[in-house]
């Protein structure tokens, strides 16, 4: 048994220079990374815990179903104005939503596109883009800005380990091969992320 035991305690501390060096080097790398990723997509992997509000990649907008009652939980907070009264087209949409060039049709979702003001919610800043039919019926909601994951903070004392913050990214990230978390029961396994990884070819 005893040969399995890890050594307890550190015998001596590394010199001050050796303690500071990695921090300096990592900061330089971090600055490089941030400048590289600046303006890039949300959910990018970075070495620093990005506290800036990510803007959702305009090329891949998260689209929510047309029915306004199903826009929860994002649209749930009452301080967003989702009233089906389109603001005149002076409001500049943040992204060019993929407006379908469908023929004129009263039910078609081809009316005004309006970006809501960014609103601060409990979990961060949310900005929505809404679209209306010609009859001023809300038909499409796109999330332009989604909160960064601010509910939790990740703390790691020593940066010897390659660790990346994953912001609001799903398991579909090709990078991950396994997941570690609080133990799931056999019954819960089916719903656990590990099951996705086990079944993926």
């Amino acid at each position: 048994m005893s040969q399995n035991r890890p050594p307890i305690g550190r015998q001596s501390k590394p010199s001050f220079a050796r303690q500071v060096m990695p921090a300096v080097a990592l900061t330089a790398v971090g600055v490089g990374f941030v400048s590289m990723l600046d303006g890039s997509t949300a959910g990018s992997v970075g070495l620093t815990d990005a506290t800036t509000n990510p803007v959702v990649d305009p090329n891949t907008p998260t689209t929510i179903v047309a029915d306004p009652s199903t826009t929860a939980p994002v649209a749930q907070p009452t301080n967003t104005t989702l009233a089906p009264t389109p603001v005149p087209a002076t409001a500049t949409p943040v992204t060019a939503a993929p407006v379908t060039a469908a023929p004129a049709n009263p039910g078609a979702c081809d009316g005004d596109v309006v970006a809501s003001p960014s609103a601060q919610f409990r979990y961060g800043v949310i900005q929505l883009q809404t679209q209306f039919t010609k009859a001023n019926v809300l038909c499409n909601v796109t999330v332009l800005q989604f909160p960064n994951d601010r509910r939790t903070s990740v703390q790691i004392n020593n940066y010897a380990l390659p660790i990346y913050n994953q912001e609001a990214a799903k398991i579909h990230s090709a990078k991950i091969r396994a997941v570690s978390g609080a133990t799931y029961s056999w019954q819960a396994y089916v719903a656990a992320l590990q099951a996705v990884l086990d079944s993926r070819p």
Partner: peptide, 10 residues
């Protein structure tokens, strides 16, 4: 949220 990954470790 057990359907999300918070961070990735190599």
């Amino acid at each position: 949220d057990d359907q999300q990954v918070r961070c990735i470790v190599e």
